Amino acid sequence: MIAVTLGPEGTYSHRAARAVADEIEFRQSVTSIVDAVAGGEYDRGVVPIENSIEGSVTESLDAVAEYDVAVVREIVTPIRHALLAQNEAFETIASHSQALAQCRAYLEREYPDAALEAVASTAQGVEYAREDPSVAGIGHPDNADDDLRVLAEDIQDRSSNATRFFALAPADERSKAGGKTSLVVYPNANYPGLLLELLQPFADRDVNLTRVESRPSGERLGDYVFHVDVAAGLYERRTQEAIADLEELAANGWVRRLGSYDTEHVVD
């Protein structure tokens, strides 16, 4: 099995993807990963979906709403950020925008004059630091080597920092089995009480909602797509009945079942 995830080698996505496949290839954007999986180019794609500090990864939400793919696993991994550089004489700190945000308090306190540069991944920032002594990177401490020192470890603002990743597969591998289910709902409507009506079928059947988030549909201003995670599998009658009600409410739009899946914790 071949998986594709955010590169280069050494990203947190790479660490999560190692729980999915032995052979891993890399792309530079989430959208290109989801597109490649939807087209059958790869068996699996691993993308970050939510961080415990910074919230959802909007590019991932938009991509799974746009492309027809299945979510087959959820991987949760702790995030341990380290500051890596050739020496202390750096002027720029480069990393993924999420990593920079997750370390905001530390960076403002310890390096208020450093320029912050958002790049495609934590590993890319580390590579810049390896190539240029004026740049420091933020990434996992295992990225250090003879040319790159760990100047500080666990610099994230909260010790509980963790990220959820979705393992994606082609749509025909969508499963009804698992303890969680993800849905994307486009009601194509806007009136008072709409969101309450969309969520009520789950409350009526004692299905716990673990995440609800809106994203612009791109169709018009004020028009939204809703991402819903529930703590129940598609195989369960209560889930099926709730989704049937949801589809009636969204009759002018659509409801996409991304699939049911279980959660795996990866701690290395």
Rank of each mutant, 00 (worst) to 15 (best):
V4K: 00
T5G: 02
P8M: 04
E9L: 06
Y12V: 09
A16W: 09
R18P: 02
R18S: 12
A21D: 05
A21H: 02
E23Q: 13
F26S: 12
R27F: 04
R27L: 14
V30G: 02
T31W: 01
D35T: 01
D35L: 02
V37D: 09
G39W: 04
E41K: 13
Y42R: 14
D43A: 12
G45F: 05
V46Y: 10
V47L: 10
I49R: 00
G55W: 08
L61P: 02
D62K: 06
A63P: 10
E66D: 12
E66L: 13
E66V: 00
Y67E: 15
Y67L: 09
Y67F: 14
V71D: 04
V72G: 10
E74S: 14
I75K: 08
T77G: 09
P78I: 10
P78L: 07
I79V: 15
H81Y: 15
L83D: 14
L83R: 11
L84N: 02
A85T: 09
Q86V: 13
N87P: 06
N87I: 04
N87V: 03
T92H: 14
S95Q: 07
S95R: 06
H96D: 15
Q98I: 10
L100V: 03
Q102S: 15
Q102F: 07
Q102H: 07
R104L: 03
R109I: 05
E110H: 08
P112I: 07
L116S: 05
A118E: 10
T122A: 10
Q124C: 00
A129Q: 05
R130K: 08
R130V: 00
D132S: 14
P133F: 00
P133E: 02
P133G: 02
S134F: 08
V135S: 02
I138P: 01
I138T: 00
D142V: 03
R149L: 00
R149E: 08
A152K: 08
E153M: 10
D154M: 10
I155H: 01
D157F: 12
S160N: 03
A162W: 05
R164H: 09
F165M: 09
F166H: 02
F166N: 00
L168S: 04
D172L: 06
D172E: 15
E173S: 08
K176D: 14
A177C: 01
G179S: 15
K180M: 15
S182M: 12
L183P: 02
L183V: 05
V184S: 04
G193R: 07
L195Y: 03
L196D: 13
E197W: 10
Q200K: 12
Q200S: 13
P201K: 06
D204N: 07
R205G: 10
N208Q: 07
L209R: 08
L209M: 13
R211W: 04
E213R: 09
R215D: 01
G218P: 01
G218Y: 04
L221C: 06
G222I: 04
V225E: 09
H227M: 12
L234W: 13
Y235G: 13
R237Y: 12
R237I: 09
R237V: 14
R238F: 15
R238L: 14
R238G: 12
Q240F: 11
Q240M: 06
Q240I: 13
E241K: 14
A244T: 11
L246A: 03
E247L: 03
E248P: 01
E248W: 01
A251E: 15
W254T: 05
V255M: 06
R256I: 08
R256G: 07
R257Y: 05
L258H: 11
G259D: 07
G259K: 01
G259S: 11
T263E: 15
E264I: 13
